[in-house]
Amino acid sequence: MPFSLFGADKIPFDSIHTIEKNIPNIILWAVPVMLFFTAIEMAVAYYQEHDFYEKKETIGSILVGLGNLVVSAAIKLGLLYLCIWIYNLLPWRMELQWWTLIPCYVIYDFFSYWAHRVSHEQRFWWATHVVHHSSEHYNLTVSYRLSWIQHLKIVFFLPVAFMGFHPIIFFVTNQLGVLFQFWVHTEYIRRLPAWFEYIFATPSNHRVHHGSQEQYIDKNFGATFIFWDRIFGTFEPEDEPVIYGITTNIPNKANPFFINFHELSDMVADARNAKGLRQKLFYIFGSPIKIAEEKKRMSVQETADERVGV
């Protein structure tokens, strides 16, 4: 029988639970391994008296990570329904072939780059991502800090689903993409061979992304492949030591609800107090950097007005 990649049969919705069972839960399987290496890093850092960990931030990271696992499990079936619905719409449905994981992963990572970049450039999406940047220390637990509302960014990956990849391939690709980012959140792996640093988002490349210095802000968005940043002009090598965190660090470091929703709360408050539709939209969809500059300017102006009695 001749091989055919496209034109796979539709997936009946009454078989969705079978499909769900056939999707390997790679992240859940990996949790014990992640915890093992985190414990080792934590012990070594303590023994060497490095300040890579801070108690409240570590608690916050773990609680955020646990919450994300719960949210992901709760919405998994709904996302699977969506993927199967899209898959069944297409005349170019791909057969379930293991090797289609390779092009799917590369394409998925391309859209991940843009989803990540937009998450830094527009405040609405920044509110779904800031949790990952709110730690002032860089260690393996930072990889646990994934927003509970980050799944809204599925809209950025719908083009991948519309390419006809089998839903199982799509879900496995997502999990592998998330897991890849675990090992890059460490201070213990310095520079790797030049060819590897040129292609992949290594710990060195990703430390830059978490920097709060001006030269590091909004750089190195690549999740697995750093060559997207080289192509689109957002690459920055690790030069001076990185200062981690956000430009205005959060006070409540252990509360997972505050960590997840503080920016969303501030955004809603700013939009509510803004004058006119244009300013409201600015505070929701504007650049986080420009919004911070505008709020700082207004604060300085208000202080000056108070001094002159206006």
Score class of each variant (00 low, 15 high):
I59A: 09
T141S: 15
F157R: 06
L152I: 14
H132R: 07
C83V: 06
I102P: 09
E57P: 00
H166Y: 09
P159Y: 12
V106A: 11
V155R: 06
Q122M: 14
F170R: 02
L179G: 13
I168R: 14
A161L: 14
Q48F: 09
S147A: 10
W148H: 12
S143H: 04
Y53Q: 06
Y144C: 04
C104L: 10
N139T: 04
C104S: 15
Y113T: 02
N174E: 14
V71W: 09
L158P: 05
I169Y: 06
Q150E: 12
Y108R: 14
K56H: 04
G67Y: 03
Y46V: 09
T100V: 10
S61R: 07
I154V: 14
L66M: 09
L66I: 14
M94T: 07
F180S: 07
L69G: 11
W92P: 01
I59N: 04
V160D: 08
L90E: 09
L90D: 04
G67P: 03
W98N: 10
L89M: 13
P159D: 04
K56L: 02
I149Q: 06
K56N: 07
E136Y: 00
Y113C: 03
Q175I: 12
W99H: 08
V131N: 08
L89T: 09
I84S: 07
W125E: 04
T58C: 04
N139S: 09
F111T: 00
R145V: 03
L146T: 13
W114R: 00
H151K: 12
F165N: 04
V178Q: 13
C83N: 07
P167C: 07
A115M: 10
T58W: 00
M163D: 01
T141L: 12
E121M: 14
K55T: 13
F170T: 05
F170G: 00
I102L: 15
Y81D: 01
K55S: 11
P103L: 07
W125A: 10
F180M: 12
E49G: 05
I107L: 13
W183M: 15
S134G: 07
F171V: 07
W125G: 01
C83A: 13
F171R: 02
L146W: 00
S143Q: 09
N68M: 05
H129T: 02
G65W: 06
I169G: 02
H137K: 14
W183F: 15
